[in-house]
């Protein structure tokens, strides 16, 4: 039963990824712009163009190209980047950790900030404190992540320059890392000087990405908490002598978190989508930044690779959310 459900799930994931691959493959070939024309110097002959087209397989039909590419993907070969002339998979995996670190730090910030304000707001429901939290989250939500990025650059990069506004790490530093997960590895290696330098680069883009999500979490969780706090078992806990904070943390939070969890899963994929522009804004060397270059250069294999990795990430996040949902809700665990 469980195995069957797992296999169905796996099949849906594969179909989703296949669909994404088809759409991206077709769209970037139908869209205007020619990668070959961008590679050649002015004055190249038609014969040169034709030779290069044949080299990258662009002289075949779209269907043929797709199946050539797909057979490569199945074997783990995503092709060669046209603009960077390197293996696509290597390029993607080199950049992916930077984006993952940024997204995870932003997610943790959003959960911490949104969760705390939701709990405080629910505890102080009906007071000026709750109204203040509502106003703040309304403001955080109505400004998109890239605009937050600009605001932060202006505030903490220019007016009060305490953070670095560009790059992932100070270029003069010696990096002893073996993985691309610089931040996590620096913590594990206890090189806290490097952690600090990485954080100084990462905090502003992370905050820019986190603020809108924090606001969503805050509003939804607070609403769910307030609903749960009127339920009978919560009243019973108050009669037992527990304080409002204890009641919220021990009785209400877990049950109220379920709807928020589903939403955070969806919103986290939006956050990862947001890294594309925010990374660009902060010249942060992640996958999103690379995606923009790939699009500008019409680097078809690289775009396909990046999009497919993003799609895989989204599918996995959804899977993780479903599993956490079952973990938090005992009624779903059996059957």
């Amino acid at each position: 039963m469980l195995l069957q459900r797992f296999l169905i799930r796996l099949l849906t994931m594969l179909i989703t990824l296949f669909g994404v691959a088809v759409v991206v493959f077709v769209v970037i070939r139908v869209a205007p712009g020619d990668p070959i024309a961008m590679m050649l110097p002015p004055g190249a002959t038609d014969a040169d163009i034709a030779r290069l087209r044949a080299l990258y397989g662009l002289d075949k039909t779209i269907v043929q190209q797709f199946f050539i590419w797909l057979s490569g993907v199945v074997r783990g070969d995503f092709g060669t980047s046209i603009s960077l002339r390197q293996d696509v998979l290597g390029l993607v995996f080199n950049r992916l950790p930077a984006t993952l670190e940024l997204a995870i730090v932003a997610l943790l910030m959003a959960v911490a900030l949104g969760g705390t304000t939701a709990i405080i707001g629910a505890r102080e429901r009906g007071t000026a404190v709750e109204a203040g939290i509502d106003i703040a989250s309304g403001a955080a939500l109505s400004i998109p992540d890239f605009l937050w990025g600009l605001v932060l650059i202006l505030l903490f990069g220019v007016l009060v320059p305490i953070f670095d506004i560009s790059g992932r790490v100070s270029p003069q530093l010696d990096l002893p890392f073996v993985t691309q997960f610089y931040l996590f590895e620096s913590i594990l290696r206890l090189r806290l000087d490097l952690t600090w330098d990485l954080l100084k680069h990462m905090l502003m883009p992370a905050v820019a990405l986190a603020l809108p999500l924090a606001a969503i979490i805050s509003q939804l969780l607070k609403q769910s908490l307030k609903e749960v706090l009127d339920l009978d078992y919560v009243v019973l806990a108050r009669v037992k002598g527990f304080s409002e904070t204890q009641v919220i943390l021990r009785e209400a939070l877990k049950n109220a978190a379920l709807p928020t969890l589903t939403l955070v899963g969806v919103q986290f994929t939006f956050l990862i989508g947001g890294t594309v522009i925010v990374e660009r804004l902060f010249s942060y060397e992640g996958l999103g930044n690379m995606a923009i270059d790939a699009v500008i250069n019409r680097d078809l294999p690289l775009i396909q690779g990046i999009v497919l990795v993003f799609a895989l990430l989204f599918v996995l996040i959804n899977l993780a959310v479903d599993m956490m949902y079952a973990l938090l809700n005992p009624r779903l665990r059996r059957g």
Partner: peptide
């Protein structure tokens, strides 16, 4: 709160909603 917790108790109306489901 502590006094009420120590000296009183509640038997609620609806046993289906008075226990925390999780």
């Amino acid at each position: 709160r502590t006094l009420i917790g120590a000296r009183t108790a509640l038997i609620p109306q609806d046993p289906l909603t008075a226990l925390n489901p999780s």
